[in-house]
Amino acid sequence: MDLPKGKLCSLTNLRSFGIGPFSETTELHSFLDLFFYALQPPHYYFPSLSELSLFGWPHWESLPEQIQYLSVLTGLELVGFGVKSLPDWFGKLSTLEQLGLWDCKKLENLPSHQSMRSLTKLSELQIDNYPLLKERCKPESTSSSTTDPNSEWSKICHIPEIVID
């Protein structure tokens, strides 16, 4: 779909947006440049966008940094990306209530402790099909989970609902 930059400013009431899946040869960032152009200063065209779903491919090793400018985002789904770590700018998503991470098989690390603790409204975390992250996010019966440098549990243990499959 062609959506000229001039039309983006008319989407001020957009609440939910999903992008993908694309063909494997499509570069998400080139497609998203148009959408995320509207999020960069001084534009901020999507003041009502509260839910975002992004579908990627394993060879896409980064996420669009412009996501951090979605100031009212309450739900975020990331599917199929090849990122190894979620960026620390996740901590800027202070309104985020639900985070769904699916089928990102290379993901090993969540953002830093500080960034995850900044997500004070985050009440639901779903992690599915993350073989490298799954074991690191499990609670441990001993106190080692808080001192183990490979454990991610201490970053998420404050979240009321955690579903890891």
Rank of each mutant, 00 (worst) to 15 (best):
P47G: 03
E27W: 09
P41C: 07
P58I: 04
I67K: 01
I67G: 02
E65K: 13
L32H: 01
W57T: 14
W57F: 12
P64L: 06
D33M: 05
E65Y: 08
D33Q: 11
Y45A: 10
F46P: 01
L54T: 11
E65C: 06
E27R: 13
Y37G: 04
W57E: 12
H43P: 00
I67D: 05
P47S: 03
L32P: 00
S53P: 07
E61C: 12
L28E: 11
L52D: 06
F31A: 10
Y44K: 05
F55V: 14
E61Y: 12
S30Q: 09
E65R: 09
S62G: 07
S53W: 14
I67S: 04
W60Q: 12
Q66E: 15
D33E: 12
H43S: 07
H59L: 09
L34M: 11
A38T: 03
F36W: 07
F55T: 09
Y44L: 06
Y37C: 05
S30M: 04
L52K: 05
L52A: 06
L49S: 04
P41L: 09
F31R: 14
L49H: 02
S48E: 08
Y44V: 00
L49N: 05
H43Q: 10
F31L: 13
E51I: 10
A38G: 15
E65G: 06
E27A: 12
W57H: 15
F36Q: 00
S30A: 06
F35H: 04
G56L: 11
H59G: 06
P42Q: 00
L34K: 03
E27D: 15
Y37L: 03
Q66P: 08
L54D: 08
E61A: 09
P64Q: 09
P47M: 05
E65F: 06
H43W: 05
H29D: 14
Q66C: 08
H43F: 06
Y45K: 02
Y45M: 01
P47I: 08
W60K: 02
L32R: 06
E61V: 14
L34D: 12
E65I: 12
L63V: 11
L34Y: 02
P41Q: 14
L28S: 13
E27Y: 06
W60T: 13
H29N: 13
L63K: 11
I67L: 03
F31Y: 15
L54H: 07
D33F: 07
P58V: 03
F35T: 13
I67A: 02
A38L: 02
P42T: 00
F55Y: 15
L34E: 10
E51C: 09
F46K: 01
E61H: 14
F31P: 00
H43G: 03
P42E: 00
D33N: 15
L49Y: 07
L39K: 00
G56S: 14
P47W: 04
S50E: 13
F35E: 01
